[in-house]
Design a protein around this nucleic acid. Structure first.
Lengths: 244, 244
DNA sequence: CGCGCTGTTGAAACTTGTCAAAGTTTGTGG
DNA sequence: CCACAAACTTTGACAAGTTTCAACAGCGCG
């Protein structure tokens, strides 16, 4: 099992104050005292089995969630059935902010492997962040980064061709795995080709062909969902290189 | 000049408490007392002439902006020059939230006509929203809605064909103009075909052709930048209709 | 009043989507 | 533990949609 949980996450932590993800999360820079208050807030956990929804479009919004372990996708579905995957979330990332504006969730969040999240009741988060300036600011940063991330995806969807999209996707995953202590070069995709395609605005066959092409060119090794990145500069060149 | 400012906005207002946009903005539901505090915060205005930047990628982030009058676009530009327009902002909408996460603006904001914004110094907004619960919540809602809006655009970019994209774009504009007291059926585009194309992930020629096609089909009347929507249900049908 | 920017239209080229078939893996139940 | 079904992936051939390149028209700014 090459995707074992890295050492720093192996032991079971029970509180934000002990959570090794805090630099990714809301608790960065908080004093011990403030961390304890946050701990009280984030008491509950929730396990979500692979394939289950953390929430659905139309659910009442009550909390945001921090991914503790596992892997999620969020998506939006049109009346005619077309699906757009809007993001893949991994350990330390925040889910559910789509619901704040309307008090109702506007997308679906589905676990792509057995996962666990911290439940952060939103009303209480607002209360506490009136008290803790740093927490308030951290939360605003998280939302802002989500907006910036979305802009990056718009750029991808609006201007890139298929192979550029896939290269950007792989480099992004590599970077995020690296930040979590996993190998930058070797990882297991939790999502299907179809889900990748939906995220990248491509059909699954196009994704599959792009994978094959990258493999032929020696940029990556592909074995179903297992990916080995062999030439990061090569992938970056595809991104920056004009489509000419 | 068919796009005259509607009566409710014609007189010059000087404060949030008097601002007719408040339901679109941050001050919804605030008591008079709290509105006054917000007034003090939002003292300064800034005029931005057509073509000028409100801010640029790399600028230090210090404030967010509420559009008082005029029309803006935001965009992101890749190293190789490719541009993605990430949004068009009109009266009452908030600009600049991209900068919170990194303290540096991550996109460009350009006025597409002579415009004026309210400057909302962000540090002070955070301070005040620790005091005024409703203001805090309003701001969170605004950010959340931005995220949801972005998801909608991803859906458009990822799954729709050219004519669906343009139909969605026109219906969205129509709705937003209506909400501001303008005609839902007749308006003036402030942006070029190229900017529309960038926003929709299409080339300007494709946008132009789609306009022509809609005109042939009697859905809209086009005279350069002047648009008359003749058949809103027809446009909606294009959106919901399978691409078959 | 003319130059330049913007918009329109046509034809050809290219990329991606569609349809189809076969191969592979995974999970379930016997 | 094996067998089978279902889900997922790969690959090919062809079709469709969009882009590219090019030419020209129109409007608007200086």
């Amino acid at each position: 099992m090459p995707q074992a949980i890295p050492v720093s996450l192996a032991s079971i932590k029970v509180a934000c104050s002990q959570c090794s993800l805090r630099e990714l999360c809301l608790s960065e820079g908080l004093s011990n005292e403030d961390l304890q208050k946050l701990d009280e807030l984030v008491g509950a956990r929730r396990k979500v089995r692979r394939g289950q929804n953390l929430y659905r479009v139309g659910d009442n919004f009550e909390a945001i969630y921090a991914v503790r372990t596992g892997f999620f996708k969020t998506d939006v579905i049109m009346e005619d059935g077309r699906e757009q995957v809007t993001g893949f979330q991994m350990t330390g990332e925040i889910l559910g902010m789509d619901g704040i504006g309307t008090e109702i969730h506007n997308c679906n969040a589905v676990a792509l492997e057995d996962s666990e999240v911290c439940i952060i009741p939103f009303a209480q988060l607002e209360t506490l962040s009136r008290e803790i300036t740093t927490l308030q600011h951290n939360f605003h940063k998280v939302m802002s980064r989500e907006i910036v991330r979305d802009h990056g995806l718009m750029m991808l969807l609006g201007t890139m061709r298929a192979e550029e999209r896939l290269a950007a996707f792989l480099l992004n995953l590599s970077q995020r795995f690296t930040a979590r202590g996993y190998s930058p070069a070797e990882f297991h995709l939790r999502m299907t080709r179809e889900e990748i395609g939906s995220y990248l605005g491509l059909k699954l066959e196009t994704v599959s062909r792009a994978f094959s092409r990258f493999q032929e060119e020696g940029l990556i090794g592909v074995q179903q969902k297992h990916i080995r990145i062999l030439d990061i500069p090569g992938l970056k060149k595809i991104l920056s290189h004009q489509q000419s």
